[in-house]
Design a protein around this nucleic acid. Sequence first.
DNA 1: TTTT
DNA 2: TTTT
Lengths: 164, 164, 164, 164
Amino acid sequence: MLNRVILIGRLTRDPELRYTPAGVAVTQFTLAVDRPFSNQGGQREADFIPVVTWRQLAETCANYLRKGRLAAVEGRIQVRNYDNNEGRRVYVTEIIADNVRFLESANSANREEGGPATGGGGNYGGGGSGNGGNRGNFGGARDNQDPFQDDGRPIDISDDDLPF
Amino acid sequence: MLNRVILIGRLTRDPELRYTPAGVAVTQFTLAVDRPFSNQGGQREADFIPVVTWRQLAETCANYLRKGRLAAVEGRIQVRNYDNNEGRRVYVTEIIADNVRFLESANSANREEGGPATGGGGNYGGGGSGNGGNRGNFGGARDNQDPFQDDGRPIDISDDDLPF
Amino acid sequence: MLNRVILIGRLTRDPELRYTPAGVAVTQFTLAVDRPFSNQGGQREADFIPVVTWRQLAETCANYLRKGRLAAVEGRIQVRNYDNNEGRRVYVTEIIADNVRFLESANSANREEGGPATGGGGNYGGGGSGNGGNRGNFGGARDNQDPFQDDGRPIDISDDDLPF
Amino acid sequence: MLNRVILIGRLTRDPELRYTPAGVAVTQFTLAVDRPFSNQGGQREADFIPVVTWRQLAETCANYLRKGRLAAVEGRIQVRNYDNNEGRRVYVTEIIADNVRFLESANSANREEGGPATGGGGNYGGGGSGNGGNRGNFGGARDNQDPFQDDGRPIDISDDDLPF
DNA sequence: TTTT
DNA sequence: TTTT
């Protein structure tokens, strides 16, 4: 009925931009969010929280975010589940972001910086990529029970349609 | 660095109150939170989000919350992971709540209501329960790689200490 | 850069629905939000927080909310200011809501209930109402330095255009 | 019943640290938070939102925050009111913060920086300051109807006790 | 000016 | 699998 999340953390890797078969941009990245206390060993741990953005926001995140950068994310928690190929139900929890703030620009973050990051598949080019290799589903999903979803709404695409 | 979640939803089951070997109360329940849109089939889906509370708040939740009741939860996202007995890393995402509001009292919610709900094990009583049966770990965890954690900080307990 | 507020509280009065000269619906109400502690006299105080909604949400709030009802509000803080007729700058702080949840329906809240509540002026009918009476500005504003604002963006209307 | 605010913005001035007569640290500053849209003239406006912190957090804010720095603030909205010396009731809305994150360190923010900022009065030293001058009440309050409050709970102090 |  |  109400579902709101606000996070501030650092990207663990460059964001990955992909496109659905319908051409909708989707970017995934993970935020490392330090916990507000130390563990028994006196060390600060972090939560690694997957974030998904769609459409224009996805393009912008892919263009401006990089590994190590600080970002604020606003969105909602989404829990997907699917049965993996051992017949076990797997739950994937992600933040579907509707607002992302870049808290460090390229010059304020003094790290090695490449050009815009794109996911392996890049812009949708179709082509029967077969079933080998990493098909790039989020959250470690290995199976086609876990298709891309448009803004959280499932979209009906076959495995062959996938751009990765 | 900042990690804040606010949810309003309904409990999918009665809350489960347990105690760590050190006697710390911990209550787990799942909130069903309706999504703010319909899926392609025109149906409203929900996210099922696991919530964990500790200490006094755990006791209060166990006493006042029941299946079907509406509640507001404030807390932070925590992502735990452990390796299951097939050698696969499993991620468990939960809300560690520090504030819970009961939005329906027993009389305003007209459902069948039992007495206070307690988890199978109840107050820690020791007893070598072996390794059979449901050991009650959260998030569908089946294995002892996923011990209880005190307020998110790992606590060092052996399997035999577990009250379930 | 980021501005997010979530409140749960009760309406201190029926909501007031009005229309801008351009016909845009705007509803104002105040939430009483109990503080999470007692004051020195051992009494629970509340904050009285003004909320503004626009367009469709304004209509829905006017239709479904009533004095005493419990509601959850999501939005952003907006601070307006104007100079009153004593030359003093007055600050008005309101929540511009983009999401309102009705946590009590008409039957779960057992209070005297009238029909849909409308502000004094109702649907915009023009008419030179002069300067007598309650001109209905929010936040106690008395002067025309405080015109209605569309979604927070100022709109250019003269005093004579005001429907109240 | 629930009252949560999260802001990211920049300080409009150096923070002001003061002490209550009981020696409790309290720091006030204002965040400029850009609105997520442009006004009719195509310009981005900002909301100027007063923030209050107490105790250890107050000391830390006074030590590490400066004019122009970016900060994230988590807290609750508090609405105080008092009658000014023209017999008019004045409402003061502030964020009582329980969590502040410094999103820019002294070296990442390239601005003129002085030493730690202290409010005019500094550490409470008594001294009959009479009633002349700026007594430093928050939110433009001019009168002693607006005493400091400890964590939002009113504290019983006379005007003469005030350190400013 | 305030809600349960 | 993880960020500063």
